[in-house]
Structures are given as structure tokens and as C-alpha cells.
């Protein structure tokens, strides 16, 4: 089982590496480039069997070090970053939390984290899906700046789907505008 999952990680990694989808950052001062045609060869579709998002698993057999995530005295016990409405910038108050997670991830180089981006129900489902991804990206960027390897981070946006709080009010919405750091092996 373990070997299979590992192979899948490697495979997914390899695919991502050869896919050649690397996009150059857009320089805001230059005019928009001509529309480019993306060839099939240029962007390799990920086959079904490695595309499940389930391919991530801890590389280590002993996962007891993950118990610290349940220790309320540790900054690692906080695994959620909240956002303002239609906002995707990480508020300064999450610095201690994310600094701790970055250090934790760097200490355990084969540990993987999935950043799940969510939005509240207001506005449109597709826009919220994009917003959830923007939020996950903001958290990823923060972790990467601190030195976490790109290979340790996966992102997925669920938009306004799967709310943790169901009410049609600000209290519920505030809880739903979030990025959840979900560690594999837990």
C-alpha cells in the first residue's frame, strides 16, 4: 500500500515536472501578450489514476510526531487561516501560526500538507471556487517564502462547498472563509 502511494506521488511529481505548464509571471507594465495557443503537448493532462488528489501520503512510517498538532499549547494546533469577504491576503495575526507550520514542514521534509481553500456562500459558486484557490495560494506563498519546498504543498479549492457552519449570517460566513492546513497521515 505504502509503496503504491509513494509511487503515485513520484509519478504525480514527475508528471508535473514534465508538463511544462510553467507560466511566466505577467509584467504589469508590458501590454498583454498575443493570445497563445496551448498545444496538447505543451500541457499534459494528468491521467485519471493519479489525479485523485488522494495520492498524497506521509513518507515516514512513524507518524507519532504529528501528535503535536493536537497539543493546544502549540501554535501548530491552529490549522485554519481565516479571511475577510472577497479577500485573499493573509492577515498578520496568522504569522505565528504559519511560521510554526513552515518550521514543522521544513523539519519533516517528507511531510505533505494540503491547503484547502474555502469561501462563504455569498456571491457566485464559480467565483468562490477561484477565490478559494487564491486563498490557498496566499498561504502557500507565505510558507514557500519561509523555505517550505513546493513538493510538500498541494492546494485544492472547494469554494463555497462543504461549509463548516451552515447559517446565513456573518458568524457562519466568517468561519467558512478559510484555508485549512490538512496534513497527510491524519
Amino acid at each position: 500500500m505504502k509503496i503504491k502511494s509513494l509511487t503515485m506521488i513520484l509519478l504525480a511529481g514527475t508528471l508535473a515536472a514534465c508538463s511544462g505548464t510553467e507560466e511566466k509571471p505577467v509584467d504589469q507594465n508590458t501590454p498583454l501578450p498575443e493570445v497563445e495557443t496551448v498545444e496538447d503537448e505543451a500541457i499534459t493532462a494528468i491521467p485519471d489514476d493519479v489525479d485523485d488528489g488522494n495520492a498524497i501520503d506521509g513518507g515516514s512510517d512513524d507518524l507519532s510526531f504529528l501528535e503535536i498538532l493536537d497539543d493546544p499549547t502549540s501554535p501548530l494546533s491552529n490549522t485554519t487561516v481565516y479571511f475577510g469577504f472577497d479577500q485573499h491576503d493573509v492577515s498578520g495575526e496568522y504569522a505565528p501560526t504559519l511560521d510554526a507550520h513552515a518550521a514543522f514542514l521544513m523539519e519533516h521534509a517528507d511531510l505533505q500538507v494540503v491547503l484547502e481553500g474555502y469561501a462563504d456562500e455569498r456571491g457566485t459558486p464559480e467565483y468562490n471556487l477561484a477565490l478559494g484557490e487564491k486563498r490557498a495560494i496566499a498561504v502557500r506563498d507565505y510558507l514557500q517564502v519561509l523555505g517550505v519546498s513546493a513538493n510538500q504543498i498541494e492546494m485544492v479549492s472547494y469554494g463555497e462547498e462543504n461549509p463548516v457552519a451552515e447559517g446565513h449570517n456573518e458568524a457562519a460566513w466568517a468561519q467558512n472563509r478559510r484555508v485549512k492546513l490538512a496534513y497527510s497521515g491524519r
Partner: peptide, 24 residues
């Protein structure tokens, strides 16, 4: 989004190719 940024593409069902329409 390619995990980077959501943009609009047009997928041709016959040629099975994507063409990028927006870049922002």
C-alpha cells in the same frame, strides 16, 4: 488555473486543444 491563476480558455471539442483567452 493550473494551480496558479484562473483564466479563461476555449477548448475545441474536435481538435481537443485549449486556447488561452485571458491572461491576468
Amino acid at each position: 488555473s493550473y494551480g496558479k491563476n484562473p483564466d479563461i480558455y476555449i477548448y475545441d471539442l474536435r481538435s481537443r486543444k485549449f486556447k488561452r483567452i485571458t491572461r491576468h
